[in-house]
Design a protein around this nucleic acid. Structure first.
Lengths: 184, 184
DNA sequence: ACCTGAACACCGTTCAAGT
DNA sequence: ACCTGAACACCGTTCAAGT
């Protein structure tokens, strides 16, 4: 006779996202998730194989959130303006939710197919805009890699307070990103 | 009556570096360090306040190693060629020791003064080369940030296998880095 | 002054038993 | 079919006792 489920995979991911957003990945303990879900620790294992699987689900969700904040920027104006505001939205997300942002590009689950699929979907708008801007197919992949590398590097350094020598960080971001966009 | 020290701070850092290099930060356990040092767990606390202090010492050591692999590249040829080969050396280090590389730009100890000091020393050659290349003082900080952001973003994505759509990754690196160097 | 065993709190995980 | 308490191994850390 089945006992009614007190929680669900989706509810647990939502809880996990909140925990990581608030206090980073190490705050994502089985005990904390279980308590927030109104359930005992071992029950989590009915929904996820282990803690790593939960972390991976959070990572996928973060990639989807990043794609979602960039999507509204793919409308109106020129391809180049859209690309610039996509970058600005990317940076804004990373600075607003640094703990969540840190969940992406983690070597631990880099090989996972779910991450691969989410990544593929989230960079598609970038490819589309680059193509719309007239970038030849041969250069598409290289240029996309360069742009994302700059965005990721800049915002992850910024989020980890690596730019501590003063000066105008906003200006550096704009300068670097526009320099790369100018090669289109 | 003092018992002779069986280990030292430097020996423990060397052990910690090996553990992290081989299996990542989570392999750096007090028990593993103690065993490799021929000592019992609690003795570690005579040399480091806690595990976080050990991780921080590893991070500082990695920053110094990165500076050391770039130093030989600051000789001969033109400033631009030196800057390019510094970037190549940076990337080579990150790809050869991905676990060690991951120890830098960690938000957890971003505010630490030891990290700040090591970072300051390690970027000095970059500033010097940029100045030698004729970059005006006003642009120095911005340009250095842009270059390091690109390097960090590219190699950390590469090390976490984020570039999985085929194509020529070496070419993308060269393209992006040279585009940024061209603004000198 | 440094090292040690014993102890504690916490964590992820397993499993047999409950409904 | 999902939930639970009990149990286990492992971990970081403290501390009084040893030399």
């Amino acid at each position: 006779m089945p006992t009614p489920a007190k929680t669900s995979r989706e509810a647990l991911v939502a809880i996990a996202l909140k925990l990581v957003d608030a206090n980073g990945a190490e705050a994502l303990t089985i005990a904390a998730v279980a308590e927030a879900a109104g359930v005992r620790g071992p029950s989590i294992y009915k929904h996820f194989a282990d803690r790593a699987a939960l972390l991976l689900a959070v990572s996928v969700a973060v990639i989807e959130q990043l794609a979602a904040v960039m999507a509204p920027e793919t409308t109106g104006r020129s391809p180049r303006q859209r690309l610039f505001s996509m970058g600005v939205a990317y940076r804004r997300f990373a600075l607003k939710s640094p703990h969540l942002y840190q969940m992406i590009y983690r070597p631990d689950f880099s090989g996972d197919p779910a991450i691969g699929e989410a990544s593929r979907l989230s960079v598609q708008p970038l490819f589309d805009e680059l193509a719309a801007a007239g970038v030849p197919p041969k250069r598409l992949l290289s240029l996309a890699r360069v742009l994302v590398a700059f965005l990721h590097g800049f915002v992850s350094m910024e989020a980890s307070l690596a730019f501590r020598l003063g000066g105008d960080v906003d200006k550096a971001f704009e300068e670097g990103f526009k320099t790369l966009l100018d090669t289109i």
